[in-house]
Amino acid sequence: MQRVVDFFKDVSREMRKVSWPKRKELTNYTVTVLATVIFFALFFAVIDLGISELIRLIP
């Protein structure tokens, strides 16, 4: 049981050392991730539609 308590004490100590992002940085990171996900979703949707159309052309 003492090992578990020591583990959580160590975790707590290390979490205090973490450099957390400021609100503006977090907002910028979030927008960047969302824009990237949307871009790739649209990109792969277009590629998928193109491949589907090519397959339909094959008799």
Rank of each mutant, 00 (worst) to 15 (best):
L26V: 01
L57F: 06
L54Y: 07
E25Q: 14
R3E: 15
V18G: 05
R16D: 13
M15I: 12
F40N: 09
V4I: 15
S52H: 08
E14W: 04
A35V: 07
M15T: 13
K9W: 08
P21Y: 09
V18M: 14
M1E: 12
V33Q: 10
V11Y: 04
K9M: 08
V31H: 09
R56C: 01
V31P: 00
V33S: 08
L26T: 05
F43Q: 05
K17I: 03
L49K: 06
M1K: 11
K17M: 07
F8G: 01
D6P: 00
E14L: 11
E14T: 07
V4W: 12
V5H: 06
V11N: 00
I38E: 11
L49P: 02
S12V: 03
V5Q: 11
F40G: 06
V5W: 09
K24C: 05
F44S: 10
L49I: 05
L42Y: 00
L26S: 06
F39P: 03
E53P: 01
L34M: 12
V5M: 09
P21D: 14
V31R: 14
F43G: 02
I38R: 14
L26K: 03
E14A: 11
F40C: 11
T32E: 11
E25N: 08
N28Q: 14
N28R: 09
M15S: 12
E25G: 01
N28S: 13
A41N: 11
K9C: 04
E14M: 09
V33K: 10
T27Y: 07
M15D: 04
T32G: 07
R13Q: 09
D6Y: 05
M15H: 07
L57C: 03
F39C: 12
G50P: 00
A35M: 07
P59Y: 00
G50V: 06
R56D: 04
E53I: 06
V18R: 11
I38P: 00
I47M: 10
S52Q: 10
L54Q: 07
F44W: 15
V11S: 03
V46C: 07
L42N: 06
I55S: 00
K22V: 03
S19D: 14
R3H: 14
R56H: 12
F44G: 06
T36Q: 06
G50W: 00
I38L: 10
G50H: 01
L34K: 15
S19W: 07
V31L: 12
A35C: 12
P59N: 05
E25D: 15
D10F: 00
V11M: 10
L54D: 03
K9E: 13
L57G: 04
N28V: 02
F39D: 06
A45K: 13
R13Y: 10
S12W: 04
E25F: 03
